[in-house]
Design a binder for these strands. Sequence first.
DNA 1: TTGAAAGCGTTACCAT
DNA 2: ATGGTAACGCTTTCAA
Lengths: 358, 358
Amino acid sequence: MSHSSNAPIPPSSPKPRSRRTPATPPPEPAPAPVPTSADVARLAGVSRATVSYVLNNAEAVRISEPTRRKVREAAEELGYVPHAAARSLRAGHTRIVLLPTSHVPVGPLYSAFLNELQWALRRLDYTVVQYGSLGLTGDEAARAWAELRPVAVISLGEVSLSAHNVATLKRAGARAVITLGPVGVPGAHALVMDQAEVGARAAAHLVERGRNRIGVIVPEEDGLELFSAPRLAGARSVPGARTQVLPMAYTEESAAELAGRWRSLGLDAVFAYNDEYAMLLMRALQDEGLDVPGDVAVMGADDLLIGRLLRPRLSTVQIELPTGDHLASLVDRAVREPSEITGRHDLMSATAVRREST
Amino acid sequence: MSHSSNAPIPPSSPKPRSRRTPATPPPEPAPAPVPTSADVARLAGVSRATVSYVLNNAEAVRISEPTRRKVREAAEELGYVPHAAARSLRAGHTRIVLLPTSHVPVGPLYSAFLNELQWALRRLDYTVVQYGSLGLTGDEAARAWAELRPVAVISLGEVSLSAHNVATLKRAGARAVITLGPVGVPGAHALVMDQAEVGARAAAHLVERGRNRIGVIVPEEDGLELFSAPRLAGARSVPGARTQVLPMAYTEESAAELAGRWRSLGLDAVFAYNDEYAMLLMRALQDEGLDVPGDVAVMGADDLLIGRLLRPRLSTVQIELPTGDHLASLVDRAVREPSEITGRHDLMSATAVRREST
DNA sequence: TTGAAAGCGTTACCAT
DNA sequence: ATGGTAACGCTTTCAA
């Protein structure tokens, strides 16, 4: 186990030819080797330890000003940049927050939210790794994520994690595994954002307005079930509401097709996945000669700006989301003191907003 | 400024059998140590080398089936997951593609594009690291990115890189530094997506339709200058177009305010940043009693679906973007054979689409 | 067929 | 005030 690597090095010793792994014979243009702290040390005529101290502003040890300058200049000259992987290997932990991504944008509201979250995490000095997990099982995903040794994982529910998967991640060093989905996973911090409430508010509102034969628009696009399924379930759960599932793609054709057979459906209201789908369908219904809300009440969700620009103005479900900063600091707290935050935390609230379309 | 290593996270405490450095006395809840390949080897009664061979399906060496099973079972039992950082440290390179992010969503079109790109990269087995670079100078950003030793960097232009910065990244092992912005950086692969063309097409279309006093809507939101500035410049460059800059926020209030003083501006056309801003303004103008396109022609950009749902239907600039797959494979080629792809590649084309608003 | 050991780049202890 | 050195977890010759 003795690592007698580069033995006592005279400051003037010539630089070794090639330090790179000779895995493959250098094709032709020998790639210039990445400068290491050892290179800096050699150039500055000091030890690697000293380099580390200087560059990290270590306070435990005192380094003379001339030495500091020498080291800094050497680093500058070589264009030295420390190696994050080596550092975290040594440190025993990373600052990686892993964010699994579904492969379809789930709408402007959540895109903005996720974006905000990333920024907030970045501000707290975390490194956000976006990990696409298309079609991975819980086991596969957990393994793949664990390889990166993230200090935290924030899952929206793209993959359904078992308690065992959470355990795998924790054993790999994750101090916080957070689920944002409707369902809590045993062992994980559950920050509940239950989309079911959205559907429930919408349906309840429609029932209140005297409608009870409610069509529910479910996007045909893949990857949205995560949001659309709970919303549908929520709508179904409302007493007095007779719901009917209506798949629709986010295209004019699909909307026109649905609108074309609308009269035969015998519905007096519709709740769309979100305001965008609602707008699309409402336009198609109007083009079909139907009156909104006279013939059919239309309800959207997410309270997007476009809803207010339509005529009639779109009734919707307004969603109160935590700010990215808030969630980020929650994550940060969970990382610092894993035991502190636990159990379910409700983060989302939904309210029906009546405008003119219902 | 960021010393991610000196993070306020207590190092994992020592295992009873003392593999870890007993730096600090165990706080309280001794976190179980992360199992390593050595642990697997010990449990399976083989050497670490054998473990590596088995788990990586090494073909150079033949391991007996019983041994393989023993190793696999041991790994399973311990929930062993290899450590990506250690692996890439040893390997001398990573599969990280670094994607700097601006802190504001630049619109549905580009969000979707970036999302697609991430997926395509993921499919090619790259790890996408989203790196927020708010307010970093080129030097700072290059350093921070280089620490991760990404094999490729895809910059949209959030930070302006110098040739020196590109050199830093390459010296840190980046085989491809790709800029998607309008301007090429010396030393980088330039995949040009020049937003100026969008503005030029829009203005040219308006001039063709007999309008020449053109207002150009520029978002007040931060982080969009990256796109809006070139679009504005493009519009200005069109002969015969007299342009006027009109800052506007993406809110009803801002739009109403602008619409309120519209008649005093003496304009006969407007080109908005994108279809969303166009929709917002068009509604405000209509509410103000102005006729579109009679009193004022309205032109959007990005050819979003909503534009086709409006009345009058929104004229726009359709943008032909490369698919995420295409760009990903371009990146992949650049990584595999850095010399092959070089120089400027034009990736974007823009076409004016006349509907009813102009 | 398997094992011992070197080394990737870093940092932190313990000597000078 | 500095420098030697071990160790983080992994892969890969080289020997046995």
